[in-house]
Design a protein around this nucleic acid. Structure first.
Lengths: 234, 234
DNA sequence: CGCTGCATTGAAATATCTCAATCAATGTGG
DNA sequence: CCACATTGATTGAGATATTTCAATGCAGCG
């Protein structure tokens, strides 16, 4: 989740950062079951969080956008229960736990900021459950598009209705609990209805956001404080 | 999530409790979008957390068992994004935010305990997403049964393979993102296969847990520290 | 007995998956 | 520039899974 950070806190975070790494597209930065010693802050890029079954089928359980903490929960749990993979060339700040501990002493507000990030994450996951549990194919894709649009907009990166992210159709499929083939058909249907247009590779043009929202029963996404907090979709 | 609390912390929590309320089966104790001023600790009973769409269809996004905090995230976010309903006669301790603040000052460890509860909740939600996203009907029901069995077992309340909870088939359906009719057929199928037996109303006899686990690709559930943390299901 | 709340069943309509190809864009080496 | 490999999108068609609608069954209870 995105968090507004004061300049002071920001520079303290920067100080606490042990490493800034660059990860090529398609590589894992965290592996499920392997203990970590730091949390990640995404400076640039897009990251997919996922769980895998024994057949190697992935289920996405989150998408990290730039400017977001990726795994604050690991600060408490130490061993991630998911893997994370960058979808493009990503730049990531690693903030070690011990540095974080020191930081929390110096800036007590930091506790609230990070803890809130964990809590927002929970709420976001509940949206995902709703999406996969209550909607059918078309609605699920629409719902995810709405979520990403909403988040990018709040970060000021949703200009001219363009969703510019490195997600492939099969990534949408993994996030929506469906086959890539079915995802493709849902995209086709949304396109036929005139709701979206896939401009070029991986750029989705949102043409009728309100229709998408209706279809997806989407209400605004909880990016720290934003929007309609009512769980009732309207 | 269940948390092991020291006697000292426990009594402090008790002190901080403003109210212990009893809620009859089927009543809401928290309503989505309505600000709260305290968190809930479930002393006795079973609680369903859910989100609702405009048609009134519910999607469960969590099940609270006795001995668990129900909504620590509200301590950070103040406005719940979900509703909660008791499935039986429930006894609930309300711990007001300000009391909690005071408590956290006196017992710094408390931060870790509660924060961890929030983080575990996230992990649990990821299991739910996996369940609904990657499994089909039978597997989903099996997965939920495994989760509940696992949690009850860790609390020492899973004697003689009996799942004794007030969940109706339609509650399983709401949690698994499917129609109650379909849930019924999945139960029937699990019964025919000899994996479970529904003894009497609302009591599920688990006959072949290992088979259930295999079917559900279930690996142990994260109830604070327990089990195989690897996300790879085997 | 006649409710009521849940579980169960049947059958047709849809949605989704699976398998098997094809297509379009892009990049690479010669 | 061409031949070829690669990656991701697209299509078709049959097999399954799931939903929907409409009834029935079954037990507890006033």
């Amino acid at each position: 989740m995105r968090t507004e950070l004061s300049a002071e806190v920001l520079s303290a975070l920067e100080e606490a950062t042990s490493d800034v790494v660059t990860i090529e597209a398609g590589n894992d930065l965290v592996t499920s079951g392997e203990a970590v010693s730091h949390i990640h802050y995404l400076l640039h890029g897009t990251v997919l969080r996922y769980r895998e079954d024994k057949k190697g089928h992935r289920q996405a359980v989150g998408i990290g956008l730039h400017g977001e903490f990726l795994d604050v929960d690991s600060f408490q749990l130490r061993v991630p229960n998911y893997s994370m993979r960058s979808l493009d060339k990503a730049e990531i700040a690693k903030i070690p736990f011990d540095g974080l501990d020191a930081l929390l002493c110096r800036f007590p507000d930091m506790v609230h900021i990070l803890w809130t990030s964990t809590a927002s994450e929970s709420i976001a996951l509940q949206y995902w459950i709703f999406r996969i549990g209550r909607l059918r194919g078309e609605g699920r894709i629409a719902h995810l598009i709405c979520e990403l649009a909403e988040r990018l907009r709040q970060y000021g990166r949703f200009e001219s209705g363009e969703l510019n992210l490195p997600l492939r159709q099969c990534d949408y499929a993994e996030a929506c609990g469906m086959t890539p083939i079915h995802a493709n058909r849902c995209f086709a249907s949304l396109r036929e209805r005139g709701f979206v247009d896939v401009k070029r590779a991986r750029t989705i043009h949102v043409l009728a956001e309100s229709e998408l929202r209706k279809l997806a029963m989407f209400n605004s996404f909880p990016v720290n404080s934003g929007g309609n907090p009512s769980g009732i979709v309207d």
